[in-house]
Write a protein that binds this DNA or RNA. Structure first.
Lengths: 335, 335
DNA sequence: GTGAAAGCGCTAACAT
DNA sequence: ATGTTAGCGCTTTCAC
């Protein structure tokens, strides 16, 4: 059974393809087509369950009605929740979503951007970028692709952003720890360390300590590789034991690091470290299930998703692209 | 800057569009185009960074190189891990993925299928279906859409499946609990209860108890609504307390239910229920972080993804669609 | 108010 | 071994 097309409808109704196409695209009034005719056409279309061929339409109009979303890892809850939210919001605008993960690999991100723009012809891109050099995104080839960056700021890139206040959230969290009596707070950061989120959180940590009159020695930063989280955490745990320099709190800069720390703390060999207080940037369900009172900073996932869609739709529809910055607030969660 | 197209390459190289198209699509040898010419063409394409217009190509060939994935909830780790795996495997075949969530809503699933097939023109569909009636998928309109069902079996629908042995995994788990000395094992199931996964797991539970000589009274099944998990769990917990009929173990039929149970057990008001042993179908990271020794059944996520892609690619490329069934094994995880 | 016809960029059947 | 040409199904300009 061949798929229904405009011509079939045209023949059945006795109207031209043009007229039907106009009505279908909501331009009936604009072209002065009578209400009655419009109603007839819409009825027939609904009854016959006709849907225009997407490829023909896209070929003709140059629009794909697809938005690309690029994140480091869709299987990380933080991103999968954002993705779900964005998908929902987009569908309200008649747009579809295509999601890909970079695994924090810069080359892969570039490849994905090229692919989405060049081969898939997406109408816009929402990116939580892992790239440290603005130049890639400055290439003229990308200059007229509507683009919105979320979660992370690309160093030196003036663009449209929807991010959260990483510095502020971090500062608040560390201050809270100190008020709680913590004297020696170590910070477990993430490599690639150029990520703006990590940098800002690190900054908040350092400033908080400095403001409290802490000297250089109080700042203890350990770098964890993205793809080696558990191993690296254990490495630093061993270091703590050997040097007998054990912090009274650890501030994990993202949820995977916190989870790895909690996991390590349960191991027999690290029993001496089990009492270290844990704080985490990003709040996850796990923290509600364990005895340990993890203190965390929660990110407004749905707000991020909604703001991202609002903004990219605005860029697409108005063609106006005067770089904008939206910074959302975090919320401290004590337990 | 206008986008590069076939004609530009054609003019620059002095070859016809046809020849270039042939080479581009790997049909150079088939059409007897000299190695040298092919090399020249490929070089130029690489140098100029030319990519064919996807819409024109799709319009002409009728292929979109998009596969749709429909699950109940992409933000559930089980599905997001599957989605990520499928995306990777598909990209090796030059295909893209489009993921949507149904929230266990049958109508939404139908809508999504229609949309993907009708409006997006996907080349194939991978579905973890929530539908209870085979008839929707039997409609001739869908008969020539390559389709593969994962995770869940649609009642009475003969189709291509890649699922796991829910019955066997459940049986093994409950047997293990009984061997551990549990006398009264309650089962927290999920509504919509027609889901084959839930049904099979429920079956495994009942058979295990029956085989052990357990009478009717030993079978305690509580139904939890998909969108009310936490509330329902607490409701049953209250019931346990009021009727003073407290099980010594609870078998949660999926990960969200287990998490809700663990959460409730931590509440003061349910302290009397805190010692109930918990078992769960599906293994999640959380279980490694809590003191409670949750016993679980782990599902081979990557195998499911890989098998799904292999099979749907086979259906698409060979056009052969002799319904197949692949049942993968689970693994018991004791703690 | 409505319709005819051109053309979006590509592929494949048919020429040569 | 390479080129000509006819559409794929839609939108939109222009004509009536």
């Amino acid at each position: 059974m061949r798929r229904l097309q405009l011509e079939d409808i045209s023949k059945q109704l006795g109207y031209s393809k043009t007229l039907i196409s106009m009505v279908l695209n909501g331009k009936g009034n604009q072209y002065g087509i009578s209400k009655k005719t419009q109603a007839t056409v819409m009825d027939a279309i609904a009854k016959l369950n006709y849907a225009p061929n997407k490829f023909a339409k896209s070929l003709r109009t140059g629009k794909s009605y697809f938005i690309g979303l690029i994140v480091s890892d869709v299987s990380n809850v933080f991103y999968s929740r954002i993705a779900k939210c964005i998908e929902r919001m987009l569908s309200e605008h008649g747009y579809n979503l295509m999601v890909c993960s970079t695994d924090e690999n810069e080359e892969r991100e570039k490849l994905l951007v090229e692919m989405m723009v060049n081969k898939q012809g997406v109408d816009g891109l929402i990116i939580a970028s892992t790239i440290k050099n603005a130049s890639f995104y400055c290439h003229p080839r990308l200059s007229d692709v509507p683009m919105l960056f979320i979660d992370r700021v690309v160093p030196n890139l003036k663009a449209n952003y929807v991010v959260i206040d990483n510095y502020g959230g971090s500062l608040e969290l560390v201050n809270h720890l100190m008020k709680d009596g913590c004297k020696k707070i170590a910070c477990f950061a993430l490599t690639p360390s150029h990520l703006s989120t990590i940098e800002d959180r690190l900054n908040g940590y350092q400033i908080a300590i400095a403001k409290a009159g802490g000297d250089k020695e109080k700042v203890v930063i350990k770098e964890i590789a993205f793809d080696h989280v558990e191993e690296d955490v254990e490495m630093y745990f061993n270091e703590f034991l050997q040097t007998k320099s054990i912090p009274d709190a650890i501030f994990a800069l993202n949820n995977t690091i916190a989870v790895a720390i909690l996991k390590a703390q349960k191991k027999k060999e690290f029993s001496k470290l089990a009492n270290i207080k844990i704080a985490c940037f990003d709040d996850v369900e796990i923290f509600n299930l364990i005895d340990k009172k993890v203190i965390s900073v929660s990110q407004p996932v749905d707000e991020i998703g909604k703001a991202a869609v609002d903004r990219i739709m605005e860029i697409i529809t108005t063609k106006e692209d005067s770089k904008s910055n939206l910074i959302l607030s975090t919320r401290l969660i004590e337990r």
